Computed example of a mutant assay.
Amino acid sequence: MDIKNDKITIKPLRDKDVGIFSKWLAKEYIYKWFCPDGEEHKMAWLDEVNNRNTQYHYMKHFIVYYNDKAIGFCLYLDCYFEKEYIPEHYGKTVDEKETVFEIGYLIGEEEYLGKGIGKIIVKKLIGEIAEIGGKEILADPDEANVLSIRTLLSNGFVKVKDCDYRYCLK
Rank of each mutant, 00 (worst) to 15 (best):
V18G: 03
T99F: 04
T151G: 01
C168A: 09
N155C: 15
L138I: 09
E28I: 01
K124S: 14
E111Q: 14
F157I: 08
D15N: 11
K92D: 03
S22W: 00
D2N: 14
I107H: 13
I30R: 01
D140V: 00
R166A: 10
K23D: 11
E96Q: 15
A144S: 13
R14A: 14
I120A: 04
Y80R: 05
E88V: 00
K42G: 05
H41C: 01
G116S: 09
G104K: 01
I20E: 02
L77P: 01
V146T: 12
G133Y: 08
C74P: 07
Y85A: 09
N5D: 12
I30A: 01
K119S: 15
V146K: 15
K159G: 02
I30D: 00
Y80T: 05
G38P: 08
M59A: 09
V122D: 04
L169N: 09
N5K: 13
E128Q: 14
I132V: 12
Y76C: 05
I10M: 10
R52W: 03
V49D: 10
H41V: 02
L25D: 05
I120D: 06
K161Y: 07
L125W: 12
L106E: 00
L25Q: 06
G72K: 04
L153T: 12
C79M: 12
Y29P: 02
L152E: 09
D95A: 04
K124A: 13
N5H: 04
L153F: 05
I103Q: 09
A44D: 11
Y112S: 10
I107T: 11
K170H: 13
E136Q: 10
F34M: 12
Y65K: 04
K27N: 04
V122G: 01
T151L: 03
R14N: 11
Y56T: 05
A139P: 01
R166S: 13
I3N: 03
C163G: 00
K27H: 06
T54C: 14
K124H: 13
K4E: 10
Y31W: 09
V18A: 14
G134F: 03
I137W: 08
K92R: 11
